[in-house]
């Protein structure tokens, strides 16, 4: 197994970890953290794709690298927006939770699903 594949498997495992955290952890902030973990695992998959396609004197294919740079910035923007939402929710309700049943307010606008 070469280094690229090793980091690729690491990325796959990180995707698994991140996904697990995103699904099971109830705290929004921890979900955001898990999303970032998931994201970095996905980026590593791009890294493997780039590395194993090394040619023309380059250490890797630059196209996936450029895509990762774009995606990292997008992920940061998403994190910033999610955190702003969590903090605003805290301001409004005194708590940060996705669970509507204990949000304290009157849940008049919610469905019964």
């Amino acid at each position: 197994m070469n280094a690229a594949t090793l980091f690729g498997l690491c990325g796959a495992a990180l995707v698994g970890f991140g996904l697990y955290g995103l699904v099971t952890n109830p705290e929004p902030l921890r979900k955001i953290l898990a999303f970032n973990l998931l994201g970095s695992g996905v980026f590593l998959v791009f890294g493997v794709v780039s590395r194993r396609a090394a040619a023309s004197g380059l250490g890797g294919d630059p196209v996936p690298q450029a895509m990762v740079i774009t995606a990292i910035v997008v992920a940061f923007a998403a994190t910033a927006m999610a955190i702003a939402l969590v903090l605003r929710l805290l301001q409004e309700t005194g708590r940060s939770t996705l669970n509507a049943d204990n949000s304290g307010g009157t849940n008049t606008d919610r469905g019964n699903s």
Partner: peptide, 27 residues
């Protein structure tokens, strides 16, 4: 508060969706 919560949930679903899409494009 309810709409903030709805927006946060929407955002998390949407982000999960786009990151899964992204890993597909990588492959």
């Amino acid at each position: 508060a309810e709409t903030l919560q709805a927006a946060l949930r929407y955002l998390l679903f949407a982000l999960l969706g786009s990151i899964l899409y992204l890993v597909g494009t990588a492959l």
